[in-house]
Amino acid sequence: MNLNIVVIGLSVTSSWGNGHATTYRALLSALARRGHSVTFLERDVPWYRDHRDLTDPDGWKVELYQSLQDLPRLFGADIRNADLVIIGSYVPDGIAIADWVTSHARGVTAFYDIDTPVTLAQLEHGLDYLSPAMIPRFDLYLSFSGGPALAMIEDLYGSPLARVLHCSADLDLYQPRETPELWSLGYLGTYSADRQPQLERFLLEPARLLTEDRFVVAGAQYPEDLTWPPSIERINHLAPRDHAQFFSAQRFTLNITRADMRALGFSPSVRLFEAAACGTPVLSDHWPGLETIFVPNSEILVVSTPQDVTTILRDMSEDTRRTIAERASRRVRRDHTPDHRARQLEEYYREALTRRSRSARQAHKNTPTEAVELKLGLS
């Protein structure tokens, strides 16, 4: 089964200030390796244009467009003829694009929600990229979140088929690197107001207490007036090609979950998989469903207080640290690679196609009876 796939997403050319690019790159490369033809369509916007870090897509292609009107004019035939058309969350003019795609695409249509907890929390208040009325029009809803989110999407919003498609770690990029240990604990993530209190609790406060240790925070968009303890090094932006070296230079790395993700649960961050693949043990806040991704205190270390963090940094033996890291790395390779996600997507495509074909046959079967009833005035 070799599919012609078109993806319309937020960005794949730039990882600056977003987690979408690395997720798409890993998935699309895996799909291409499995023999599928993949095209990614991205709106050309200044903030990604100025920070592009994708130079050579691996077996798939990227096309940039300038405006909403460009899509039907330049790519109308591609979208109509594709076996599968995927629209991602946070795409500019996403609702209008979804309306047009679901009306004109002949193949299976899917919405890929890389921001499911945010979407479900804000959907009734109005979003730029998705409306409740659009959800039933997609054949398939791909959700970054598993667990109860899938039933909500189907039962409350009428999706004919909601399935989980988590992020993953690209093992070509994310693997242990031989590098000197520079930091006891680090964090990689774009600034978010709802994550900042957790960063204060689990990294800044331990940094103030363990003054002999070194810490690091990498990520864009942090306010300039933030005060950092002297033991914390700041890196404004880190390209994906540098992530593995960054993780490998830490004894431990920190995962912080956004408030909507913690509330909904079952929403792993891409950094969990990437750090684990690099052989760096992860300290994480707790959220429902974490145990379905990694085994707590065996493959991942769950922390609730700053004291939990300082105790681990100060007292955990090197043998225990390495054992936890190795278990997490094995888990990623067993369950959370791009190839796993590509095979899942193929399965979901077949499921959606079968469901759509069955619905079409049922509609065709019912048509003659309905026509007769109308002609005889019985309806």
Score class of each variant (00 low, 15 high):
I153G: 12
L209Y: 00
T109L: 07
G279W: 03
D56F: 02
R358Q: 06
P288Y: 01
Q362F: 08
F294H: 13
R271W: 10
T119K: 00
F294A: 09
T116F: 03
N366Y: 00
S317F: 02
Q307I: 11
V332R: 15
P117K: 00
S67V: 09
M134V: 07
C278V: 12
T39F: 02
N366A: 10
A26N: 04
L254T: 10
S379K: 07
H36M: 11
L10E: 09
T109N: 08
F144D: 00
L27G: 02
R73H: 08
I95H: 02
P136K: 11
H36F: 04
A325Y: 02
P180F: 12
V216I: 08
I5P: 03
T257E: 14
Y349G: 00
S37C: 07
W287F: 15
Y348Q: 01
N4Q: 14
R356M: 04
A193K: 07
L41H: 05
D93T: 08
L254C: 10
T280F: 09
D93C: 15
L313E: 10
L150K: 03
I324G: 05
S184K: 08
R106S: 12
L74Y: 01
L31W: 02
E373A: 05
V118A: 07
A275M: 01
L41R: 08
L84W: 15
G189N: 13
H340I: 01
E318I: 14
L41W: 06
G59M: 05
L313R: 06
S15D: 13
I8C: 01
P148Y: 03
S184C: 12
L156K: 08
L378I: 01
E200S: 13
P368D: 02
C278L: 08
P288K: 02
T311Y: 01
D315I: 02
L185V: 11
R355A: 09
Q66F: 04
W183D: 11
P206L: 03
P281E: 14
T354N: 11
